[in-house]
Amino acid sequence: MPTTVLVAGFRGSMGQKATAMIKRDPELELAAVYSPHLETTDPAAYDLPATTQVFNQLSAMDTPAQVWVDFSTPAGAFENAQFALEHGMTPIIGTSGLSDDQVAQLTKLAKEQHQAGLLVPNFGLSAVLLMQFAKQAAQYFPDAEIIEMHHADKKDSPSGTAVNTAKMIAAGRKQAPETVENPVETIPGARGANYEDVPIHAVRLPGYVAHEQVLFGGPGEALTIRQDSFDRESFMHGLNIAIKQVNRLKGFAVGLENVL
Rank of each mutant, 00 (worst) to 15 (best):
L118T: 02
L58K: 09
H211C: 11
M1Q: 10
Q115L: 08
P49T: 02
H114S: 14
M1K: 13
P177Q: 06
H151G: 14
V184E: 09
E233I: 09
H201G: 00
F71K: 00
E79C: 04
D101M: 12
V163T: 10
G76Y: 06
Q66Y: 01
N194L: 14
F230A: 11
T90L: 06
V128W: 06
G88Y: 08
K154G: 00
G255K: 05
G12W: 00
Q115W: 05
Q139M: 14
A242G: 00
M89L: 12
F230H: 13
A171I: 03
G172N: 07
E178G: 15
L129D: 08
P199S: 02
N258E: 13
M89I: 05
A162M: 04
L106G: 01
E178C: 07
V254N: 04
G117Q: 02
Q132F: 11
A242R: 00
G88E: 08
A84L: 05
A75K: 14
W68S: 04
H114L: 10
E79A: 15
L118R: 04
P206Y: 10
H211K: 11
G88F: 11
G97Q: 07
P43C: 10
D143L: 12
M149S: 14
D197T: 07
G189M: 09
L48A: 03
H87T: 08
V103Y: 11
L118S: 05
L249H: 07
N122W: 05
L98Q: 12
R173I: 06
L85R: 02
A134I: 04
S13T: 11
G220N: 07
A84F: 09
L30A: 06
T40D: 09
K244D: 02
L30C: 05
P26W: 07
V198C: 06
G172E: 07
L119K: 05
Q175P: 01
I147Y: 14
L119M: 15
G238H: 02
M236C: 03
D156P: 00
N164Y: 15
T95I: 04
A127T: 06
A77C: 06
I225S: 03
F230N: 08
A152G: 01
Q53A: 15
V246Y: 06
K17Q: 15
F123D: 03
F216S: 05
Y140N: 12
A190S: 14
D100I: 11
E196D: 14
A31I: 02
F216D: 06
V69R: 00
L6I: 08
M14A: 11
V259M: 08
P219L: 12
E145S: 15
R232W: 10
I147Q: 12
A60F: 08
D100Y: 11
F133C: 11
L48T: 01
P199I: 08
T161G: 10
